[in-house]
């Protein structure tokens, strides 16, 4: 009575019929012989046959259980390799907005508030209050889009750039698409009391020819910290910490002198960027920064003798391109699904 070799349902049935089958089963045949026996031998024989029957049944059950387990282990009657049903088709977040959020997020963790502002600005907030004098070459640093001024008369809108303090609230000043998110420095300081510690993410515009490296608009994160006793050392430390959070602990930074009308001293922060794969490395300009110029504080009625501060601004498109190996800035605004789905 061998059940260990049973391998499928058919053999199982064969085994059952052979031993336990009602008609021709071997165990049944033994029971059938009981009446032929000496009555005294019957109980012992009956007992032995019963034991045999139980044994056969147990072996059968064990074999059936074993077969079932084998079958369960082999899997259900479903084709488990068919593709799953996705709850939703795939969506994606734009890498620019993600980088923007990540950069602001790091500064938020450093205790900065977040403010956003209008993209249409007046000359005072975009330039004048930020210490860009009228007719100053510093204005050439940012090619500006001008909009029609107040009123609906035609041809009266030649850009001028008059931003004497008397003009700051005038409706006659130029209207521009903001060239940086720095105007929010002024708006924050105008509406609040120091200390200020705020980052301003947003879209800015430059009137530049479109090419692989420049687009008519881009994203920027501006930062401002004004308090008593803020020094350039603090600026260096905070921005280095930012670089390490964003680019990784090992990143090397350097600060070198630069010029922005609204900060002094002004600096650029570079990081050492290794292109990888033996391409070598180079210093890459990542952000502009500096100590808030006293003129700017004065423009917003903040006492520059009591308060000092730093400000910084970084282009988001550039670092987005850098980290994702995008070589043409226009790719970011084309919205090719084959691009978007990679993020």
């Amino acid at each position: 009575m061998e059940a260990e070799t049973i391998e499928n349902e058919d053999e199982l049935e064969t085994f059952r019929v052979e031993y336990l089958g009602r008609k021709r089963g071997k165990v049944g045949a033994l029971f059938d012989r009981i009446p032929e026996l000496d009555p005294e031998e019957r109980p012992a024989f009956g007992k032995a046959v019963n034991a045999l029957k139980e044994d056969a049944q147990a072996k059968l059950d064990a074999a059936r259980e074993r077969l079932q387990q084998e079958k369960r282990a082999a899997g259900p009657d479903l084709d488990l390799t068919l593709p799953g049903r996705p709850p939703m088709p795939a969506g994606s977040l734009h890498p620019l907005r993600e980088t923007l959020g990540e950069v602001s997020g790091i500064f938020e963790r450093f205790g900065f508030s977040v403010a956003e502002g209008p993209e249409i600005e007046d000359d005072w907030h975009n330039f004048g209050a930020l210490n860009f004098p009228p007719d100053h070459p510093a204005r050439d640093m940012q090619d500006t889009f001008f909009l029609k001024k107040h009123g609906y008369k035609k041809h009266e809108d030649a850009p001028t750039g008059d931003d004497s303090p008397q003009q700051r609230s005038s409706e006659n000043q130029d209207v521009v698409l903001r060239t940086h998110t720095s105007p929010m420095q002024i708006r924050v300081m105008e509406t609040d009391e120091p200390p200020f510690r705020v980052v301003v993410p947003g879209r800015v515009y430059r009137n530049e020819a479109l090419s692989y490296k420049s687009y008519c608009l881009f994203y920027q994160v501006e930062g401002l910290y004004v308090d008593e006793g803020v020094s350039m050392g603090h600026l260096k430390q905070t921005l280095s910490l930012f670089a390490r959070s964003f680019f990784g602990e090992a990143v090397e930074t350097r600060f070198r002198p630069s010029y922005f009308p609204f900060t002094e001293p002004s600096a650029e922060m570079d990081i050492w960027w290794d292109a990888g794969a033996g391409m070598g490395g180079q210093w890459m300009e990542i952000l502009g920064c500096g100590m808030v110029h006293p003129h700017v504080l004065e423009s917003a009625d903040v006492d520059p003798e009591r308060y000092t501060g730093y400000a910084f601004g970084m282009g988001i498109d550039r670092v987005t391109m850098l980290r994702h190996d995008v070589t043409d800035i226009r790719t970011l605004y084309e919205n090719d699904v084959r691009f978007l789905r990679q993020f």
Binding site: G111, F112, S113, V114, G233, F255, R256
Partner: peptide
């Protein structure tokens, strides 16, 4: 600053946290 060298301006071990809660719209 520039003649002394920006890289020689020490970065302090601690940076202050202003006594006001950060805000987010």
């Amino acid at each position: 600053a520039r003649l002394h060298g920006y890289d020689r301006i020490p970065a302090p071990a601690h940076v202050p946290l202003p006594a006001r809660p950060p805000r987010e719209d």
